[in-house]
Simulated assay, not measured.
Amino acid sequence: MLDNITVFDFETTGLDAQAERVIEMAAIRVVNGEVVTSFSALVQPGKPLEPKITEITGITDTMLVGAMSEDLAFRILRNIIGDSLLVAHNAAFDLQFYHHALQRLAGKSFTNNFIDTMTISRERYAYPHKLTNMCERLGIVLEGAHRALNDVFGCWELLKELHAQESVEPFLNTLGYLQKYPPPAWVPQHARLFGMANRYEN
């Protein structure tokens, strides 16, 4: 199942996938366990960044001067993804941004199968479940978190570790969301969506 996957990540101007924009994207295409393609680009958002976003990502307005256009960036990403299985940590977030960008730029969406490593993490481990937390817990080196390419390689290593523990196949096209919050505003039609609660260590 993991012989043809794309691990991807977006850094964005905010949380609302319809109103906000991607400022950085990264992806690695993995075939038969080997990374065959990697892509990373800063993307023009068409508006100034909020200070909080710069604080989280380290990306500044100056860095985005001359960045890749949204249209070109998503064309490249879509070509890399092809028909592969999509993988992301907190995939509900990234899948929404991917869907709305494709809708805006091409009038279409995507039908790729996907796996969310955060859903698996919440199912198998006690809180916390951020990518940095899970990598630290499992001894995975993650340098420069909240920069897209670093997060992508961290997510790939996390997926391999989770799959080595026990097959991740039951989590195909599965999105868990915290029940104390509303469900995601959009999910793929083929997604199985269910509410979850964090477990805490005694």
Rank of each mutant, 00 (worst) to 15 (best):
N133Q: 15
F74Y: 08
F114M: 10
F93S: 03
L102D: 01
H89P: 00
A67P: 15
R124W: 11
L85V: 09
N79R: 14
I120W: 06
M68S: 14
C135T: 14
H100Y: 14
A106Q: 08
K130M: 09
R122S: 04
A126I: 10
L131V: 13
F114A: 00
I81G: 09
D83L: 03
R122W: 02
L105S: 10
N113R: 12
C135A: 09
Q103Y: 00
P128M: 08
L95V: 07
R78G: 12
L105C: 05
R78I: 09
M68Y: 10
R75W: 11
N79F: 09
I120E: 04
A106F: 01
S84M: 07
H100M: 05
F114K: 11
A101E: 07
L85F: 01
K130F: 07
R122F: 02
H100E: 09
F93V: 06
H89L: 01
G107P: 01
D71C: 15
N90R: 05
R124L: 10
A106V: 05
A106W: 03
R124P: 02
L131E: 09
Y127W: 15
T119K: 06
P128K: 09
V87G: 06
I120Q: 08
L95R: 05
Q96K: 12
G82A: 14
G107W: 04
N133W: 12
N112P: 13
H129Q: 13
Q96M: 14
L102C: 11
S69W: 11
F74T: 09
S69F: 13
Y98M: 12
L105D: 01
F97M: 00
F110H: 07
H100G: 00
G82D: 02
N133V: 12
L85Q: 03
L86G: 06
A73M: 12
D71P: 10
C135Y: 06
N133H: 15
Y125K: 08
A126C: 15
E70V: 12
Q96V: 05
A88M: 03
